[in-house]
Protein backbone atom coordinates (compact mmCIF):
# COMPACT_ATOMS: atom_id res chain seq x y z
CA UNK A 1 0.00 0.00 0.00
CA UNK A 2 1.34 3.42 -0.94
CA UNK A 3 1.18 6.05 1.76
CA UNK A 4 0.93 9.22 -0.30
CA UNK A 5 1.69 12.60 1.36
CA UNK A 6 -0.86 14.94 -0.24
CA UNK A 7 0.72 18.43 -0.09
CA UNK A 8 -2.57 19.74 1.32
CA UNK A 9 -3.96 16.88 3.43
CA UNK A 10 -0.87 14.99 4.56
CA UNK A 11 -0.30 11.23 4.35
CA UNK A 12 -3.28 9.24 3.07
CA UNK A 13 -3.90 5.71 1.73
CA UNK A 14 -3.37 4.73 -1.88
CA UNK A 15 -7.06 4.14 -2.77
CA UNK A 16 -7.81 7.86 -2.23
CA UNK A 17 -5.54 8.82 -5.13
CA UNK A 18 -5.57 8.63 -8.88
CA UNK A 19 -2.47 8.50 -11.02
CA UNK A 20 -2.54 11.23 -13.66
CA UNK A 21 0.42 10.60 -15.97
CA UNK A 22 3.73 12.22 -16.77
CA UNK A 23 3.64 16.03 -16.90
CA UNK A 24 3.50 17.29 -20.48
CA UNK A 25 2.89 20.68 -22.06
CA UNK A 26 0.23 20.89 -24.71
CA UNK A 27 1.76 22.12 -27.98
CA UNK A 28 0.18 25.27 -29.41
CA UNK A 29 -1.13 26.88 -31.56
CA UNK A 30 -3.25 23.85 -32.47
CA UNK A 31 -3.49 24.72 -36.16
CA UNK A 32 0.28 24.60 -36.53
CA UNK A 33 0.93 21.42 -34.58
CA UNK A 34 1.87 18.52 -36.85
CA UNK A 35 0.27 15.08 -36.44
CA UNK A 36 3.63 13.78 -35.27
CA UNK A 37 4.02 16.39 -32.51
CA UNK A 38 0.44 15.93 -31.43
CA UNK A 39 0.86 12.15 -31.25
CA UNK A 40 4.08 12.58 -29.25
CA UNK A 41 2.27 14.81 -26.77
CA UNK A 42 -0.75 12.54 -26.48
CA UNK A 43 0.88 9.13 -26.39
CA UNK A 44 4.67 8.97 -25.99
CA UNK A 45 6.03 8.41 -22.48
CA UNK A 46 9.47 8.01 -21.00
CA UNK A 47 8.02 5.22 -18.82
CA UNK A 48 11.10 5.53 -16.62
CA UNK A 49 12.42 2.61 -14.60
CA UNK A 50 13.53 4.22 -11.33
CA UNK A 51 13.17 7.94 -10.59
CA UNK A 52 9.90 9.22 -12.06
CA UNK A 53 8.14 12.61 -12.02
CA UNK A 54 4.40 12.23 -12.31
CA UNK A 55 1.07 13.91 -11.62
CA UNK A 56 -1.44 12.56 -9.15
CA UNK A 57 -4.86 13.71 -8.04
CA UNK A 58 -6.23 13.37 -4.53
CA UNK A 59 -9.53 12.34 -6.10
CA UNK A 60 -11.07 10.85 -2.96
CA UNK A 61 -9.91 13.74 -0.78
CA UNK A 62 -9.28 17.41 -1.48
CA UNK A 63 -9.50 16.89 -5.25
CA UNK A 64 -6.22 18.76 -5.91
CA UNK A 65 -3.56 17.83 -8.46
CA UNK A 66 0.09 17.66 -7.42
CA UNK A 67 3.52 16.53 -8.54
CA UNK A 68 5.10 13.35 -7.18
CA UNK A 69 8.70 12.19 -7.34
CA UNK A 70 8.57 8.44 -6.94
CA UNK A 71 10.75 5.42 -7.67
CA UNK A 72 8.94 3.01 -9.98
CA UNK A 73 11.06 0.06 -8.83
CA UNK A 74 11.00 0.47 -5.04
CA UNK A 75 7.76 2.52 -4.92
CA UNK A 76 9.50 4.94 -2.53
CA UNK A 77 7.90 8.39 -2.69
CA UNK A 78 10.74 10.93 -2.51
CA UNK A 79 8.53 14.00 -2.23
CA UNK A 80 5.32 15.65 -3.36
CA UNK A 81 4.98 19.23 -4.56
CA UNK A 82 2.14 21.66 -5.05
CA UNK A 83 1.77 22.89 -8.64
CA UNK A 84 4.13 25.80 -9.22
CA UNK A 85 6.15 25.07 -6.08
CA UNK A 86 9.85 25.51 -6.92
CA UNK A 87 11.31 22.06 -7.72
Amino acid sequence: MLLMPCPWCGPRDEPEFQFGGEPATRPIPAAEVSDQRWADYLYLRTNEKGFHRELWCHAGGCGQWFLVERDTVTHVIHRTLKPGEPA
Binding site: F19, E54, T72
Partner: peptide, 13 residues
Amino acid sequence: DLYPSYAQRGNLP
Protein backbone atom coordinates in the same frame (compact mmCIF):
# COMPACT_ATOMS: atom_id res chain seq x y z
CA ASP B 1 -2.46 -1.56 -10.15
CA LEU B 2 -3.10 1.72 -11.93
CA TYR B 3 0.22 3.54 -11.64
CA PRO B 4 3.53 2.88 -13.41
CA SER B 5 5.61 0.18 -11.80
CA TYR B 6 8.67 -1.95 -12.40
CA ALA B 7 8.37 -3.57 -8.99
CA GLN B 8 6.96 -6.91 -10.15
CA ARG B 9 4.71 -6.94 -7.11
CA GLY B 10 1.26 -5.52 -6.57
CA ASN B 11 -0.36 -3.70 -3.71
CA LEU B 12 -3.08 -4.55 -1.24
CA PRO B 13 -6.06 -2.51 -2.56
